[in-house]
Design a protein around this nucleic acid. Structure first.
Length: 173
DNA sequence: TAGGCCATCTGGTCCT
DNA sequence: AGGACCAGATGGCCTA
């Protein structure tokens, strides 16, 4: 994995003044766009058969586009904040280099598995039944754990997997 | 220079 | 109807 030492990478975002340039879309872009549409229509005939509904002027459409771009940006920022929060609660990872998103998810998954197996080991697989579970002897946690890991996965293996992964991430950086 | 990661744009679809 | 969500495309930045 690589260290991202760069500052905040910011692609220029389209501003309102760009409205004036809307007519200046290159032919190349239009071509690519129509190819994309074709491809999608093949996969989703439902969309292809839908009548075009364009109640707005092109300027209005452009404005609405800019607004949804902004909303999408905000949404992605929230998603990235959540990733950051997740990074911060995964212990023992290299602090100097940021984990990539895929690393974060993979590590988190194995960390959760490892914690779960630790809990189960400490309680000998007999946690108090969850309220309302009805079945009694087996906790939902235990059942879920077995569904995810299979009966033959040893808790120690989970822990091993997790620490191996941390180690390999450190090496890779 | 190739490849990985990321931010942004975009249009379709789903949901409220 | 409009916003949220999603996936594909594109291009920038960085490292090996």
């Amino acid at each position: 994995m690589k260290a991202k030492s760069k500052g905040v990478k910011r692609r220029h975002t389209v501003s309102e003044d760009a409205l004036c340039q809307e007519a200046a879309q290159s032919r190349d872009e239009l071509l690519k766009c129509s190819r994309r549409k074709e491809k999608r229509n093949k996969e989703s005939p439902k969309a292809a058969s839908r009548p075009a509904k364009l109640p707005w002027s092109s300027r209005d459409r452009r404005l609405r586009r800019l607004e949804s771009n902004e909303r999408e940006r905000q949404r992605m920022h929230k998603l990235n904040n959540a990733f950051q929060a997740l990074r911060e609660v995964i212990p023992h990872v290299r602090a100097e280099n940021k984990l990539s998103k895929i690393e974060t998810l993979t590590l988190a998954k194995n960390y959760i598995k490892s914690l779960t197996s630790t809990i189960l080991r400490m309680s000998n697989g007999h946690l108090p039944p969850v309220e309302g579970s009805g079945s009694g002897s087996r906790s939902k946690l235990y059942e879920h754990y077995q569904q995810q890991c299979g009966e033959d996965d040893e808790p120690a293996e989970q822990l091993q997997k997790y620490s191996t992964q941390i180690h390999s991430f450190r090496q890779g950086s």
